[in-house]
Structure formats: structure tokens, C-alpha cells
Amino acid sequence: MRLFLRYLLLLSILVIIAWVKIPQRYGLDFPRNPGPEFDRQVRTLYADRINEGKPEIVLLGDSTLKDAVNAELLSILTGRKVAKFDVPGSASAFWYLVLKNNIVVAEHRPRMVVIIFRDTILTAPGYRVHGAYLVQLDEFAARREPILLERAYLNQMSPVEIWAEQYFPLYSAGEQVQKEVDAWIRYSFPNWLGCNKDCTDKSMYEVFTSADLEPGQLRNAVATAEQYLYARARLDFERQVNKSFLPEMIRLTKENGIQLIVVRLKNQMTGTDGSETPEVRRYIEELTRYLGKQSVIFLDYGKDPRLAREYYKDALHLNPEGETVFTQILAEGLGEALKQDK
């Protein structure tokens, strides 16, 4: 008992010290707003590209889009100018920001925005929003992004977490403290040997970022990350949809006279040809009904037999042959929408 009481006493002292010192050290004000803070800068990369290229069709997606669609071929097949914005590691939060802060504010207004997605990603607002993804989001986020903050972060946190973020510096400044500890460990030893911060960062980049990854490990890492999309909560469409960025993306496109088209690309995560899980099937049925009501065109290639296994280089990405096949399939699918557009 004595050990525990002494522990409580010392812990209280440490917490009080942290309460005073942390806000000073990291320049934080308490109570603070929960969730991440974004800077004022908003990159206009995609708005610039739209203004320069004046595309009629804008494709938006992650690395699967990069490998799935040949923009030049699609342009030839459809007879329309196509711009492809494929950002590896991006997800619905990023697409929402690009749509809101780049596409709809561009001087040139594209006729269509085509989002290439897989399974539940459109209604998973908390997917790929932390760590390196947060840096990616910050580039396209304005200083105030209440919808992003609410849907990607606050809705994903428990009340205890929100309280701790607001009032408890030890928890709230965790990331800053962690970064400092990490930097100390990472840079000290090489520094003693004459390799400064730049040299260390360059070494890390050379060894990890530019090197090839072991295919099996890569596959496992992808599968582990993708499990998030297939958790029970994410497959509950009704529960997810109004907390997601999908309604906002629909609103933004409608208000700006842009036809939103969402395209589901087949993947090999939940099953192979024809072996989609019942949960995913149910989710897609509900998504189809919802999009229909919202006048959003939904092209579902999630089970398309033309996208055979030999066209995939891994569970998610198509190989060059697959890219050609899918581009043709997509051009065909977009045909109907384009006829209406004429």
C-alpha cells in the first residue's frame, strides 16, 4: 500500500510539473481545440493544373487510380480532356479537401469529377488521416476545416480522448514530446560520429524511402492497413454515411454544376472473382441506393469478370495490361454519362 501511495504522490507532482512546463515548452494554450491544427497555407496544385489543362473530366483517387487508368488513352477513347489526380496514400478526407479547396474553386470548371474508390473507403472518414497522411492533408487544408476536423478526427475519438486533448497537456502534447524523444534518439548517435541531421535524414531516405520493399511484407502491410476498411463498423453503411465526406462531396459538386461519378474498382482483398463477402455486398447495395437518390452516377466494377486476376500486380493495383483493360472499361462506362452531358 505504501508503494502505491508514494506512487500516487510522485505521479501527482509529475503531472503538475507537466501541466506547467509543457504549455511553456511547446507554446500551447489550454484548453485547446481537440484534433490537429492546420496552417493557413493551402496548396493550389490541382487548381493550377485544372486552369492550365482545362480538363472536362477530372479523375481523383489513390495509387490504385495511378495504376488503373491511362489518362491519355481515356482522353482518346472519350474524346474529352482528362486530368488524373492520383495521390498514393490518399483517401476520402484528402479527396474532399482537393474537391473543396482546389477543384470547385478553380477558374475552369470541369464537367465531371470521377472518384475511383474501393469498397468502403468513401464512407471511412478516419482512414489515412494520421501521421504522414496528416502532413499530406495539411497541404490542402485551410486554417479552419470544421467538417474535416469533426468527421476525420473528433468523431473517431472517445469523449475521454477529446477531454484529454483539451485539458491534459501530457496527453495532448504527446506527439510533440514523442517527436522530440525520437529526434534525440535518432540524431544524437550519428551526430557524435559526424553525421548531422541532414546527413541522417538523407541516410534514412536512401535506405528506406528509395529502396525496394520485400513483396510479401508489402502485401502484409497493405492487408493490415486495409483491414480497417472491412471492420464491422465501417461496413455499416447507414451508420457511416452521414459521418463521412460523401454527402459533402455530393453537395459541393451539385452546387458547382459538376457531375459526380464514383467508380468502384475491383480488388483482391475481400475475395476473388464472385466471392465478395455478404457484408461488402450489403454495403454496396446500400451505397448504390443512396447514390441513386443523390443523382450520383455509380459505376461498379467491383466484381467485373473482365478484370481477371492476371491483370493485378498485387491485391489492389493493376499491372500495365490491366491498366489498358480498365481504361477501356471505364471509357465504355463513362459513355452513357457523356451522352447526357452532350
Binding site: E165, F168, L170, Y171, A173, G174, E175, V177, Q178
Partner: peptide, 10 residues
């Protein structure tokens, strides 16, 4: 405990 709280936000 302090370190757990700090590293918990990850």
C-alpha cells in the same frame, strides 16, 4: 505512467 500517457496518443 507519465510516459504511457505521452505515448498513448499514438
Amino acid at each position: 505512467t507519465v510516459l504511457i500517457i505521452v505515448f498513448l496518443n499514438a
